[in-house]
Design a protein around this nucleic acid. Structure first.
Lengths: 249, 249
DNA sequence: TGTAAACCGTAAACGGTGTAAACTATTGCT
DNA sequence: AGCAATAGTTTACACCGTTTACGGTTTACA
């Protein structure tokens, strides 16, 4: 039997919600994220926030988690613009959405994806269990694999530390649908994520020729190379127009 | 005729040198980089630094440039542990050196490679002309190309914005040795840098399974995939032991 | 129902940051 | 010698995260 939430607990969660909402609003309007600014924006004083977060970093983590959740929803929506029986197109569109979101929301991107995770034994790891954007891309890759059966490495083809890591992942995501012997898929996912992350981060930080960033050609090229590794080289003629359309949108 | 430097100019440059040196020392010992800390460490007050840098960001840029210069020197040294007639091994060793340096000096790495370049029309672009680490990797790729003649795209195979960007690069590096019609090499370089950057940044930020970071397998795998694109797939049996030796060192 | 405890906010203060302005020696040049 | 540029100072402002001590308010319990 679930105990109904007490009044105080409801109030408290509402306040935490407001903290996160206010923080995101500050970020969105280009301000810096600070305890004092958040507090002031809520009509409170800064020390009051310490009733809800232990310190500044925890606020950042909290907000980052929520941003990730919200952003992932938009990536998923982008995937859903493509038919269910075209997982390749869905994957491509989600990737494009990720890139466009990152470039349009550089501050938020940095917070979520370019923030050094201080303590490896992260306090609130429970936050990361579900709904992180990694989950979405793993799912999309899985769907693609189910349909096309592209080659994934077997566990004993992988280096030992990798095999161990994919067999028993640190972040216990919804991997139930990926049978233990098919966990090579996770490695394929990580390879793709690494490539995607590289381009997008370079673009967001502006560490690339502006003309190439603006055109998005390095991003297109990267996705093309990755798709080829997924056995979609022959599909590229079909996928590229879809991708460029999504980029132009 | 070159006017000999006046005494004041010498003094001034010496002070700037000391500022950079002090900053790097602070960074190295784990402190945060701040105007006040640098000034105090030099026996000055903070506002005095404004005689030498316009603001905090400019100090950061200055230090970042110097760190890049110094780090590049170590990458080059790593390349030089391999014979001149084995550019593949030289490239691999430089890459490993980059990764190991990044993981050992996360703060410095973030400063140089994960720092958003605020203004695209960067004020002190002249700083970037020479000795940046990009130059080294371009050189190594060039040496490799001279020896093995791996396939590089022709200019008209490249998307128009890319062709334009490699034909007339924003950062006028020492590209004289790369003939205009061979500038596809620059694109190949950018592709490689993107991949390398992706893994290393993920590793530095800890956004990857610790076991995979510790083992370095994603890094090895990335270099292997890139080397394959450089027509060194058959060479990998020879290069991988070299790489793992460098990683273990 | 009265009381003690838990909670949520405040004000004040500490030490830290970047930065601007006014002022003062000192240096270098004419 | 005298003037102007230079390089430092002190002072001040507006922020920042964080701690402490203190009041009310709400909850829970005897």
């Amino acid at each position: 039997m679930v105990q109904e939430q007490t009044r105080r607990e409801r109030q408290r969660e509402a306040t935490i919600d407001e903290i996160v909402r206010t923080s995101r609003q500050l970020l969105a309007e280009g301000s810096e994220l600070s305890l004092r600014a958040v507090a002031a924006s809520m009509g409170m004083t800064a020390p009051a926030l310490y009733r809800y977060v232990a310190n500044y970093q925890e606020l950042v983590d909290l907000v980052a988690f929520e941003i990730d959740r919200a952003a992932t929803a938009t990536f998923e929506a982008a995937a859903n613009t493509q038919p269910v029986d075209d997982p390749g197109a869905r994957l491509v569109c989600a990737s494009v959405a990720f890139r466009q979101w990152a470039l349009a929301n550089k501050r938020e991107f940095s917070l979520v994806f370019a923030n050094p995770v201080a303590d490896p034994s992260c306090i609130r790891r429970d936050l990361l269990t579900a709904a992180s954007s990694g989950q979405l891309f793993t799912d999309l890759l899985h769907d693609l694999w189910v349909q096309t059966g592209y080659r994934i490495p077997t566990l004993d083809e992988l280096p030992a530390p990798v095999a161990e890591a994919v067999r028993d992942p640190l972040i216990p995501a919804d991997l139930d649908k990926v049978a233990p012997e098919d966990r090579g898929l996770i490695w394929v996912y990580m390879q793709g994520w690494t490539m995607l992350y590289g381009v997008v981060t370079l673009e967001v930080f502006g560490h690339m020729d502006p003309r190439i960033i603006e055109s998005g050609e390095m991003f297109v090229d990267t996705v093309r190379r990755y798709a080829a590794g997924l056995g979609m080289a022959d599909d590229w003629g079909r996928l590229e127009p879809i991708m460029r359309a999504a980029l132009a949108a």
